[in-house]
């Protein structure tokens, strides 16, 4: 029964951000220590969500006191991208929280942990929780996970700091807003493409069928399919009447 189940919240915690032994944390909270919160691959977070995690908290040091200079800011960038992806999936973006914590904080870590747990409880159980039926949402989260695992988003994320804080290879300045706009666009593109990929993995689908699921214009779906063919993500499976159907290819 759903009511009897516990809330599952994972807290990825920087090894250096918080070390008090006697943490008064709720039992629903599972702490996973990592060397730096910048260590957390966005794909990992999406995978935990996909597997039914109700909430994911990332705890890092307050800037500028990261042990690894700016690992906390790297995490912030990842979370920013994750939120963009999550928004597209329809899963509540509030299920991810990035907390910058330091021992000088007036509140204890337990305070924040409880607060986050409370917030998650207010949102409710993850719809992807164990036993929940396979849903559109699962497809979305899978697509988001695959997008986050794909070279394109990863390389942009990896270069964000260089581009926004320094200058690009031509010596030009790139504002955070410009980068954000670019990322918005590319995150959406990649999400849609990977969603198409996930959807066509099980059965060949037409542009129209995909457009219905994606709630997109057919013309845009076709453009994505053209692009995915270029990248060997999808191939024409067969034609039914005047309707071509496409099937996903295994991505290396």
């Amino acid at each position: 029964m759903m009511e009897l189940e516990n809330f599952n919240v994972v807290c990825f915690m920087c090894n250096w951000a918080f070390c008090q032994e006697e943490m008064q944390i709720p039992s629903d909270l599972n702490i996973v220590r990592v060397m730096c919160i910048g260590r957390i691959d966005p794909a990992i977070i999406l995978e935990t969500l996909e597997k039914g995690m109700d909430g994911v908290m990332l705890v890092g040091c307050k800037p500028p006191d990261c042990h690894f200079i700016d690992g906390n800011l790297q995490a912030e960038r990842a979370v920013k991208m994750l939120r963009k992806l999550l928004k597209l999936t329809g899963l509540e973006t509030e299920r991810i929280k990035l907390l910058w914590y330091s021992p000088t904080d007036e509140k204890t870590f337990a305070y924040y942990a409880k607060k986050f747990l409370k917030e998650i409880k207010e949102i409710g159980f993850s719809p992807l929780k164990r036993g929940a039926p396979k849903s559109k949402l699962l497809v979305n989260v899978l697509a988001a996970k695959n997008a986050a695992s794909d070279f394109r988003l990863r390389v942009l994320l990896g270069r964000e700091k260089e581009l926004t804080e320094g200058v690009n290879v031509y010596g030009e300045k790139f504002s955070v807003e410009e980068f954000d706009a670019l990322l918005d666009e590319i995150v959406t593109e990649e999400f849609v493409r990977h969603k198409i990929h996930v959807l066509t993995k099980t059965e060949p689908l037409s542009v129209k069928a995909l457009a219905d699921v994606l709630e997109m214009k057919t013309a845009n779906v076709l453009r994505h399919i053209v692009n995915m063919r270029r990248k060997n993500m999808i191939a024409l499976d067969h034609v039914e009447g005047t309707t071509p159907l496409y099937k996903a290819l295994e991505v290396k």
Partner: peptide, 10 residues
Amino acid sequence: LVLRPSDGEI
């Protein structure tokens, strides 16, 4: 394959 740009139909 000849397709319509609007919806990918033949």
